[in-house]
Simulated assay, not measured.
Amino acid sequence: MNQIKVLIIDDSALVRQTLKAILESDPEIRVLGTAGDPYIAVQKIHKEKPDVITLDIEMPKMDGLTFLQKLMRQAPMPVVVISNQTVNGARIGLQALEAGAVDVITKPKLGTDIHSEESRINLIDKVKSAFIAGKKWTAKETSGIGSTAGHSSAGQPALVKKCSLSHDTVIAIGASTGGTEAIKTFLTTLPPSMPPILIVQHMPEKFTASFAKRLNESCSLTVKEAQNNETVHANTVYIAPGDHHMRILRKGAQKVIQITKGELVSRHRPSVNVLFNSVAECVGKNAIGIIMTGMGDDGASEMVSMHKKGAYTIAQDEESSVVFGMPHKAILKGGVTSVLSLNAIAYAVCRILDKDIREG
Rank of each mutant, 00 (worst) to 15 (best):
A158V: 12
A158R: 08
L159G: 04
L159N: 14
S164Y: 07
D168F: 06
D168W: 01
T169P: 01
V170C: 06
V170N: 05
I171S: 03
A172N: 05
I173T: 09
G174T: 04
G174E: 02
T177G: 04
G178R: 00
G179C: 06
E181S: 14
A182S: 14
K184R: 15
T185D: 10
F186E: 06
F186S: 05
F186P: 05
F186V: 15
T189I: 02
T189K: 14
L190H: 04
P192D: 15
P192F: 01
P195T: 08
P195G: 11
P195C: 07
P196K: 01
P196W: 00
L198K: 04
I199D: 03
I199Q: 03
V200D: 00
Q201W: 02
Q201D: 10
H202T: 08
M203Q: 06
M203T: 05
M203W: 00
P204D: 02
E205W: 01
K206T: 13
F207H: 10
F207K: 09
S210Y: 02
S210M: 12
F211Y: 15
A212D: 01
A212G: 12
K213A: 15
K213T: 13
R214Q: 14
R214T: 10
L215A: 12
L215N: 06
N216H: 13
S218K: 13
S220K: 12
S220Q: 14
L221G: 08
E225F: 06
E225D: 11
A226S: 10
N228Q: 08
N229R: 12
E230S: 09
V232P: 11
H233K: 15
H233E: 15
A234F: 04
N235E: 10
N235T: 08
T236N: 10
T236H: 08
Y238S: 09
Y238D: 07
Y238M: 09
I239Y: 00
I239M: 14
A240C: 09
H244L: 08
H244S: 13
H244N: 15
H245Q: 11
